[in-house]
Every structure is written in structure tokens, then in C-alpha cells.
Amino acid sequence: MFKQLTLTALAALSIAAFAAENDGWTSMFNGKDLSGWKSNEETPGSFSVEDGVIKVSNGRAHLFYTGPNGDAKFQSFEFKAKVKHMEGSNSGLYIHTAWQDTGWPEKGYECQVNSTAHKDPKKTGGLYAVKDVLDKAPVGDGEWFDYHIKVEGKHITISINGQVTTDWTEPEGWDPATALKNMPGRKLTEGTIAIQGHDPKSVVYYKDLFIKTIP
């Protein structure tokens, strides 16, 4: 009886520890294939899985998170992933976005992923064309780093390796058609996450992608 109680207690502790560790986070990538994601295949073969990570290469395309039921969308949430950009590479993480067959996603914001050597001065950790990190990327090329995005109401925070790089609140009455050139959809509503394939010379890797809704 004592042994049975001990095993039961240990099992309960393990379950509690697992719950505490996960703390509401949902895994978005199984490390094997692109289940739960859908590419628009604007440039075929831009997204693949190699050695347990998502590889982005080959050309412009976007990989949209659909989730297990095909209808994933979020309002207030936290997102985290490990990212590695190779020299001269550009990519991005779209938030509050929606499926689009071609072109740069029109809905939502882009959280920039851009290496030290790419010609675009808007670097990793910025909110593209809204609150940019200019000229100098906060991390080097060829190294894994932590990318964290938090959207709570109208407040967007981006952190790289635990350091805040963007802290921005969408103003009351925000009109992106007036505030931004050719970006009328840059507004917080609700939507999914999308990974950007930028150009044929860019190679970027993603792994350990998780999301958690904020009530």
C-alpha cells in the first residue's frame, strides 16, 4: 500500500511539474513535418524540415500557422521560438495575419528577422516600418537566438535573447493607411502567425515554436 501511495504521489508531482513547465504554452511544430502549417507556395519548396528544424530558403513565400483544426487565430498572446539567420538573410514573423496566395501579407504586422549583412537596414527585433531596429542586428549570423513576441490588447513587445528591442502601443484611432506607405492592413485585430520566405539568397531556420493565449 505504501509503495502504491508513493508511486501515486510521484505521478501527481510529475503531472504538476509538467503543467507548471508548460504553463499554457502550445507547441506549434512537431519537429518532423509541417503539420499545422500551410505554405502558399508562391515559390515552391521554400519551406522544408531538416534535422528537426524548419528551413526557409529558395524564394518569396509564406508559411501560415493553421493549427490542428485548420482555423488558428489569436488576439492577445505570447509567441516564442528559436531562430537562426545565416549571413545576408532576411525573413520575418507576421502576427494577426491571414492566408494570402501571393505577395507580402497585407494583414497584421511583421516582426523583422534580418541578419547583419542584408542590405535592408531594418534588422532583427523590430516591428517592420512601424518601430524599427535600424542598421545593427542585436544578434550575429549563424547562431541560435530566442525570439519572443507578446501582444496584449494594443501593446506589442518584441524581445531578443530576453532583451526588449521593440515596445510599442498602437495609438487610439490608428489609421495605417495614413501613417504608413502602402501598408493599410498594419493594424491589430486578430489572426494567425506566418513565417516569411524572403528571397532566393536568404536561409533562415526556426525551431521550438510555442504560443500561449492571454485571457
Rank of each mutant, 00 (worst) to 15 (best):
G36V: 05
K38M: 09
K38C: 12
S39N: 13
S39D: 15
S39E: 07
E42R: 04
T43N: 08
G45M: 12
S46P: 02
V49D: 05
D51S: 11
D51L: 14
V53L: 11
I54M: 02
S57M: 14
N58C: 11
N58G: 14
H62A: 05
L63Y: 03
L63N: 01
Y65R: 12
T66P: 02
T66L: 00
G67W: 02
G70L: 01
A72N: 14
F74M: 09
Q75E: 14
S76R: 06
E78P: 11
F79Y: 15
K80M: 13
A81V: 10
A81F: 04
K82I: 11
V83H: 06
M86G: 10
E87T: 09
E87S: 12
E87F: 03
G88F: 00
S89D: 08
S89Q: 09
S91M: 11
Y94H: 15
I95M: 13
I95E: 11
H96V: 01
T97D: 04
T97V: 06
T97P: 04
T97F: 04
A98F: 12
W99V: 02
Q100Y: 00
Q100D: 03
Q100T: 06
Q100F: 08
Q100A: 06
D101E: 07
D101I: 03
T102Y: 02
P105K: 15
P105L: 14
P105G: 11
G108E: 11
Y109F: 15
C111R: 13
Q112V: 12
Q112F: 05
V113D: 12
N114L: 14
S115I: 05
T116V: 13
T116M: 04
A117E: 10
H118K: 09
H118L: 07
D120H: 01
P121A: 03
P121Y: 11
K122A: 09
K122T: 03
K123E: 06
K123Q: 12
K123D: 10
T124V: 03
G125A: 03
G126E: 06
G126D: 04
A129F: 08
V130N: 02
L134T: 02
V139M: 10
V139W: 00
G140R: 00
W144T: 01
W144D: 00
F145M: 07
Y147L: 15
H148L: 10
I149Q: 00
I149A: 07
G153V: 05
T157C: 00
I158A: 01
S159P: 12
S159H: 05
